[in-house]
Design a protein around this nucleic acid. Structure first.
Lengths: 187, 187
DNA sequence: ACTTTCTTTTGACAATTGTCAAAAAAGGAA
DNA sequence: TTCCTTTTTTGACAATTGTCAAAAGAAAGT
């Protein structure tokens, strides 16, 4: 739970009282490789913090799995659309390495917002930072070539290459596995 | 200012006191076609609500203008990255039709958050909804063909076609103007 | 109406990327 | 190790999309 405390402190320091209340509301989840944190069609009731491990979110599109994000240590994990809208999600969250997460339910989180303004501010700020990251990814998809996106990923997140299979990375970059393989061989 | 009140009420109703405080902090901006709300290199100090008109955000990339969003009536407008991070923006916001906006500065907005928890919640909720929209756009860029993205745009936002030039729409979709023209002729 | 300017379309060709199939390489399990 | 499974690479070809240049069309100003 220390990792979470350190992580949120980087976004917005909260009062000790707020942290105590929050930590009581958190539930630890240990989950092993290849199992699922969330399946298509479920409503995502929890927001998670990933303390250890890694996982991915993907869609089924015409029989193919399309990975559209990865989660690593110190990332917040949820099916954002489903968690916010309270509607069934269209994605799957699969565990890629045995993982430890801390989860809080939608209801519990919203109750905390009413008690500790601090926490609502924290979540607002984290949301904003995640929005900026998403914008960067969209921009890369919109105006960069496959090779440029791959090179950018190598620079910003070289650890991904060590932990994720090529096919999943290709899918994340919006290109076929064969194309990514060729890009790498011509580096 | 009624439009703004109605708009935010759809996201999260706020108290009358909060609305009064907010409306006092807003400044009206009238700005005419082809001028700029924001230029590359400036720090974006304001969050705007677009009451009337339309505009676009674009980047200069290798001498080309790459449009990456449009704003229409009832949209919130800012250079999100710059507004949040307080760093110079890399984009331009250009007015496409004579427009009326209501603006609030970063400082004023953050002061309001301390006074009215209501407003911070409102902004959190609006951010979340904008995040979901951005996710949808990213997904479209990641796994849809140019034709599919165009058809999706026609379904969800047919008004764009009436008000925005083809070249700018193409750029928004991440394709060349010629390709979009051909897609249309083969519809 | 008549320029002038900007936007859209069309053609020809090149570059990028995708698809399918098979081979090679790597990783796990017994 | 050996076998089995999964992942990655390679080849051949097709489809998509981009680029450049020119023509056609639409909009704006005089």
């Amino acid at each position: 739970m220390n990792a979470l405390f350190n992580c949120i402190s980087q976004y917005h320091p909260i009062s000790l009282g707020a942290w105590e209340t929050l930590s009581k509301a958190l539930k630890q989840v240990e989950i092993s490789r290849n199992s699922f944190l969330l399946r298509e069609g479920m409503v995502c009731n929890n927001l998670y913090f990933l303390e250890k491990g890694c996982l991915r979110g993907y869609y089924n599109l015409d029989g193919k799995e399309v990975t559209y994000w990865f989660g690593f240590e110190n990332n917040f994990i949820t099916s954002f659309y489903s968690f916010i809208s309270r509607k069934p999600c269209v994605e799957n969250i699969q565990i890629l390495e045995d993982s430890t997460l801390w989860g809080i339910s939608f209801e519990a989180l919203n109750q905390l917002f009413d008690i500790h303004n601090d926490l609502e501010r924290l979540v607002r700020i984290i949301n904003e930072q995640y929005y900026i990251r998403l914008e960067e990814r969209l921009m890369a998809m919109q105006f960069k070539t496959a090779r440029e996106r791959y090179e950018q990923l190598m620079e910003t997140s070289p650890h991904i290459l060590q932990r994720i299979s090529l096919g999943q990375i290709a899918s994340y970059l919006g290109i076929s596995q064969e194309t990514l393989s060729r890009i790498r061989s011509q580096a």
